[in-house]
Amino acid sequence: MPWRSNSIHSIELDLVLDVLARRHGYDFRGYARASLKRRVSGLAHKLGCATIAELVPRILYDDALLPEVLAGLSVPVTEMFRDPQVFKGIRDQIAPVLATYPRINIWQAGCATGEEVYSLAILLAEAGLLSKTQIYATDINDMALAKAEEGIFPVKTIEKYSENYLKAGGTKALASYFSLGYGYAKIDSAIKDRISFAHHNLVSDGVFCEVNLVVCRNVLIYFDRHLQDRVLGLFDSTLSRSGFLCLGTKENVAFTPAAARFAPVDAPLRLYKKLAESP
């Protein structure tokens, strides 16, 4: 797509976002602009539009296109055990506290195609906690959710993730959690059965249960400060007393008022604990 002046590009983007919000109820106007612009440009290119503005009638009149549009705007990219030291941190610093609870509820917000939530479930299984844990994995992107729920990954990627798994403190072979065949690896039902996948939009949906840990990595980087603040407030409401929050390692909540409701457990790993309500 050819480069256009800042103002034209911005007007086109605003038009697309306006149609999505007013016609379909998906409000991306609180997303950080630079990456959103890239994604919308990419979507226009993929759908054969010469300009971003050409997306407007397509999105306005073709309802069947919506899942593909949402998938294009949320571009799920995850890996298993990405940033292995974070998973090691959860294992060493959070799991021992969770172990003292009779039942554990966990919410992964923005689970994309599931690699991360399965990593978390494997970690909990090795800590002996999975059998008393319920994980809710949510995303705005139904195409990604369907893929996550399948739990089928190319064998090659499992080999690639094995190194991360071991660095995260994994005690077995990563492949032992999958059944292998035809070049694909399917996650064991013992792992998958503890996870419920559901559609949830952090922009507009509310709290749906009380949880002891929220994992939301590399989602807030796509939000502007206002939306980031709303979402951190949502996490505060959904977390139980002294509940834990895990964000992405490059995420910066320093400019967000709601961040004051959390204290760092391990700041470099972005592990936080909910502070007690002030009296």
Partner: peptide
């Protein structure tokens, strides 16, 4: 990336030219 207000943003979007960070992504923003 750089936003219009000259603050940084980052993303984990797919690699561009097999690279993340990509030079194209920063330059275009």
């Amino acid at each position: 990336m750089v936003e219009a207000d000259h603050t940084f943003s980052v993303s984990t979007d797919p690699k561009v030219h097999n690279a993340r960070p990509s030079i194209d992504v920063l330059l275009i923003s």
